[in-house]
Write a protein that binds this DNA or RNA. Structure first.
Lengths: 130, 130
DNA sequence: GTGATTTTGACAATCATTATCAATAAGAAC
DNA sequence: GTTCTTATTGATAATGATTGTCAAAATCAC
């Protein structure tokens, strides 16, 4: 049976307070700074559990790190600022339909899609192109 | 000045022969098995260079590994089989337009998008749904 | 409270990737 | 062809995120 622990709550709460996506490492730092003595492995486990339950979204940063964010509900996508981490949830019915259709057309089953946009938000100065 | 080496050619050739996406590690294995004494770090460098030149596509697997594939040209997306690695290049003008528009709507600049679909191709038996 | 069992946490282990740096080799100049 | 400059290689160490281990602690049912 699944048990409730203050650690899991702490992770959930901390994730809720984040504006954008955060790594497990970073969230552990945040919790530690706030005085919590939670273990790093526990943060990893809690985040994985949240993601599994659909209570959190996870994605891979371009650097290959796993990032997490409190998830409002259901399946959706994001527009993520490379600089400040700001994440905007995107309604993408259009893309959902396209993805489903494309997968089916090619005979693919159990298709999951990764659709995210990384860029610089209006508040962040983009570095010189080139 | 950029110099030509057999190592770079070997990596390019090996990548061309692959059906789907491969990791740097895996490509290095392949080359080694074929009798090549190329170094692992060199494979990483060559792949990064190819990706930088637009001669290869790279993406992150759900496990956080960087995968590479010889790239026909331009920007496109993929439908990737989790089992056999088969990758189908997808024309996604629709999604391109959507991504560009969405980023602009929210004031994002220098937007890059990640759009890939992972699933099981018709030749591969999907594991029992959990 | 008691007991069965899940969960935690410190640390070791793993794994992909990157940095280091002396040795090598490509290409230019002659 | 020889010589020189310097980009490139490769063996290995270093890094850094993530996962495994397992005894100790905490949770929930009773």
């Amino acid at each position: 049976m699944k048990r409730n622990t203050w650690q899991r709550d702490a992770v959930r709460d901390a994730l809720d307070k984040q504006v954008g996506f955060v790594s497990a490492q970073s969230l552990h730092q945040t919790l530690s700074n706030a005085g919590s003595h939670i273990g790093l492995a526990t943060v990893y486990r809690a985040l994985a559990a949240l993601a599994g339950d659909g209570a959190a979204d996870s994605l891979q940063s371009p650097d290959g790190e796993s990032l997490y964010r409190a998830c409002s509900s259901g399946h959706h996508h994001h527009l993520i600022c490379r600089s400040c981490g700001l994440a905007v949830e995107i309604e993408a019915d259009e893309v959902e339909a396209w993805a489903k259709c494309t997968a089916a057309l090619h005979g693919f089953s159990q298709a999951e899609h990764v659709v995210d946009i990384f860029g610089f938000c209006s508040a962040c100065v983009p570095p010189p192109a080139g």
